[in-house]
Design a protein around this nucleic acid. Structure first.
Lengths: 166, 166
DNA sequence: AGTAGATCTCTTAGATGCTAAGGGGATTTT
DNA sequence: AAAATCCCCTTAGCATCTAAGAGATCTACT
């Protein structure tokens, strides 16, 4: 049987798409609960942590309060509270938009990234060890699939929102 | 397109472990927000939806209310409310444990799986199309990695909780 | 058997953080 | 300029969580 025969010679336990999908579900479900625990450890709630993630991911073009609301899937009223909490906890800063004085840009403070990363580190470190078991080709497969799955999820989310409003 | 031999140099865009990890982060972050939208569409909140997921995943040995609380990361007091809502929405049923009358087993109703799956279907269908682009070897790699990453996440969550209590 | 302690779910009170609706200032359009 | 729109914030009200404890049941020990 040719399955398992690859250049690097590493045999992976065979899996059907359905099994891989189930594994993805478990990973996501566990992540959901873990977010809760991680947020708590940082003195935040899940919405706040989600927002910090979005803010850190938009360093080049800081998000406005409204954009953050859309990405986090909450109202702008809620974002006011989120940013207040994150600001007094020293994670972010409100910065007036020079071009439009109605807008508020939310920028991460210097220490924010490190403080967040510190909590995720034990997990990331061990995940790095796992990656060491995969060949460049295999990592390309993983990166490719994760990117595509993420794209599908984004599309799907947008559709849910469109239909939800209608 | 010829599949089945990674030696054939399939044209996956090369990716570093860090890039794959970033893709995972985006997938998880999007999933987190999507859960919110999915739950809303089902008339539930995120906690309720998380719990339905756990209940559906434990068909063989129905969870007790307490076990569900641990898995969902909430108190037993909250679970009472969750199960009340899920019960009146027709997703689950309380079933007294024959061996221990303090316990309540939460079992899914017949239609629950279908009702939940209906909402996820558009996403799953498209993900199935993506899987069709991968060889059995590659799917084995994906399944393997997703399983290991999920395992690490579970371990990490357990550690967070241990240290969180201490 | 009988009793003390542990375990399990549910109740209650209080806290948290969300939505919905609307206000006031800034910007854009007519 | 005036009108309409946009953006963030405020407020009131609601949903749902935690913490603490009650009541019922189970287990272990004498």
């Amino acid at each position: 049987m040719l399955r398992g025969f690859s250049v690097d010679g590493k045999a992976r336990p065979p899996a059907t798409p359905a099994e891989a999908l189930a594994a993805m579900d478990r990973l996501i479900a566990t992540s959901l609960v873990a977010q809760h625990a991680i947020a708590q450890r940082l003195g935040l709630n899940v919405t706040d942590l989600t927002c910090v993630g979005h803010i850190l991911g938009a360093v080049d073009a800081p998000l406005t309060a409204g954009e953050l609301a859309v990405r986090a899937g909450v109202t702008t009223g809620a974002i006011t509270g989120v940013v207040n909490r994150l600001e007094s906890a020293g994670f972010v800063e409100r910065r007036p938009d020079p071009a439009d004085r109605r807008r508020v840009r939310i920028v991460a403070q210097d220490t924010a990234s490190r403080r967040i990363h510190e909590v995720y580190e034990p997990f990331y470190d061990r995940l790095a060890d796992v990656f060491a078991d995969y060949s460049p080709d295999e990592i390309a497969v993983l990166g490719d699939w994760l990117t595509r799955a993420g794209g599908l999820m984004t599309t799907y989310l947008a559709e849910l929102r469109e239909r939800g409003d209608a």
